[in-house]
């Protein structure tokens, strides 16, 4: 079209920009002036914003901004704020008498919630995120405890660990590898005996042979009836729970070579409040024991 002529739209009587797409033309309506000022204001705002907040990328890092804001700093602030808010509860939890923790509902709920977080961070690698354990790593959901299931016993185990050489207060016991002391047939007889006292299918004749061996070799730790002893970490052999398996193969391996499960001490790495929290959490997972009442 001729650029010197105005192209007036017939319907509206308004000048067009001269741009045309498939017969559709763009009207050349003027913008409101305040819109222009608003546009300039956004530019000014943008410039001020890049001065006030981290913005321009440089070689090593971006400009910091006059306000000194950073998202990391904000997270740190928020965490500090939460910690400050919970300071009283945390202090109370660090020095609480665990046996009476459940009487303080507020503190108990705080401990369990915090303990769940501690558990997921530090314990789930071995015991599983659902605390169901694995072969060699105890299931914390059941009612069978190697070193005691009262809340204070759990806290002690968490604090000092098991069979580690870091903490001199760690639980310690060691089962001999009977492969060096007994004949293969004797071990087989023992296996049949252990299966008999745990109510599993077994060879009665062999089990009878194993009875004497058991009394000689095993009762010192596992007790006369094979019920175990949680002051020695000796498992109860009569129940349905097996840390390494209750089948013949696993039992034979256990007796022949022994087992040596290790847990690190958590005391220096976790604060007293965190140890108490995770003990409270584990204690309420389903198997927690109450102190025996007189």
């Amino acid at each position: 079209m001729d650029h010197n002529e105005k192209d007036i739209d017939d319907v509206t009587g308004i000048d067009t920009t001269g741009h045309e797409w498939d017969g559709i033309k763009e009207l050349n309506n003027p913008l409101p002036r305040w819109w222009l000022w608003a546009f300039y204001a956004t530019i000014v705002w943008a410039v001020l914003y890049t001065v006030a907040y981290p913005a321009w990328p440089l070689v090593n890092r971006a400009t910091g901004g006059l306000l000194g804001y950073s998202t990391r700093g904000e997270v740190v602030q928020q965490i500090e704020a939460v910690e400050a808010q919970n300071a009283t509860l945390t202090a109370a939890l660090a020095s609480v008498d665990l046996a009476s923790l459940s009487e303080d509902q507020m503190l108990n709920r705080y401990a369990i919630a915090g303990g769940a977080a501690v558990f997921r961070t530090y314990c789930s690698q071995c015991h599983g995120s659902g605390a169901a354990g694995a072969v060699g790593y105890p299931n914390l959901l059941d009612d069978d405890w190697l070193w005691g299931g009262e809340i204070e016993e759990i806290a002690y185990t968490v604090r000092h660990g098991i069979r580690n050489e870091v903490d001199s207060d760690a639980h310690w016991s060691e089962m001999p590898a009977f492969g060096e002391l007994l004949e293969e047939q004797e071990i087989t007889n023992l296996v049949e005996y252990v299966r008999s006292i745990s109510g599993q299918q077994h060879d009665a004749a062999m089990a009878a042979e194993g009875t004497i061996l058991f009394e000689e070799q095993c009762t010192a730790c596992h007790g006369e009836a094979g019920m175990g002893d949680d002051s020695l970490g000796a498992p109860n052999l009569t129940d349905a729970i097996w840390l390494y398996g209750g089948d013949r193969e696993a039992l034979t391996e256990t007796i022949t070579y022994s087992r040596f499960g290790v847990m690190p001490p958590w005391s220096p790495r976790l604060s007293d409040a965190e140890v108490n929290a995770v003990a409270a959490y584990v204690h309420q997972l389903g198997g927690g024991e109450q102190p025996a009442t007189e």
């Binding site: 169901a132 299931n139 959901l141 009612d143 109510g199 349905a240």
Partner: peptide, 18 residues
């Protein structure tokens, strides 16, 4: 229903769901 794990075996052989 808690699905991690789906069940727990107790010492008397009972099966528990949470």
């Amino acid at each position: 229903p808690v699905r991690n794990p789906t069940y727990v075996t107790l010492s008397d052989g009972s099966i528990r769901n949470v």
